[in-house]
Amino acid sequence: MNGLAPIVSWPVMLAAARERIKTPLLIGLVLVMLIIALGAAGPNADGSEGFAAIAGFLLLIFTMMLGAGLIDEEFAAGHAQLVLLRPLTRAQWFGGRLAGAGSVLAAAMTLVWLSTTANAVSKGAHFDLARVLALPVAFVWAFAWLAVLAALSVVLKAWTNIAWLLFATILWWASKLAINGINAVMVAKDKSTDHFSQTVVGFIGTIEPYVCPQDPLQIIHTLHNGGRPDWSPLAYDLVWLFGAWTVGCVLLNRRELSRRTT
């Protein structure tokens, strides 16, 4: 653990985890996640049931709540300035905040995984490699989203990091829907397959997996069914995780620490 000291401040991590873990809304959400995940745990479950479908949606909500204003709220209160006057680098502070929220995320996910695993195994499900890997694989995905939110929180005020992320997501889906619609109309009109709109649709389809962290649970399904999984979504998530972490540190190093700007 001490090897991570240059990029993660453990006292900051502990304080960030303490703050987050005492949030009643987050505790309530973990309970809801537990109930829903337990309902999905059956004899045929492969281990991903705690993080897929509705449980997966709740996990994203939980991650967003953890990441809401993760960095900026400390600046707005003025406490970040006091902490950053201590002998630690901004990268260590950023790493500590992110790791603190990440540790709460890990604890909640572990709780969900343990409960669903116990429930599924008691109903006759196999305790195989897929089930073991479900937790770390899903965690990397959620943690990558948390890192994106943390990086956004360096430059966006309060909880607007979530608002911008949701806005970007809605814009992306709306654009995709609009382009697909335009393409369908144009193809129906002259039955041609050589349209510019089709090129755009193809392009969007190509880049879509890379514009945000990818859902890697397909790895678990494939492993459970005895196939050879495609590990690339996990690799992309790791790139997103460390990429966002790096960008967050760079942005933080450029930020003036004081609250006074005008």
Binding site: R18, T23, A77, G78, H79, L82
Partner: peptide, 12 residues
């Protein structure tokens, strides 16, 4: 450094 009207994490 002790700033004017400091604020601290409300749950700590």
């Amino acid at each position: 450094f002790s700033p004017d009207a400091p604020q601290f994490p409300s749950r700590l």
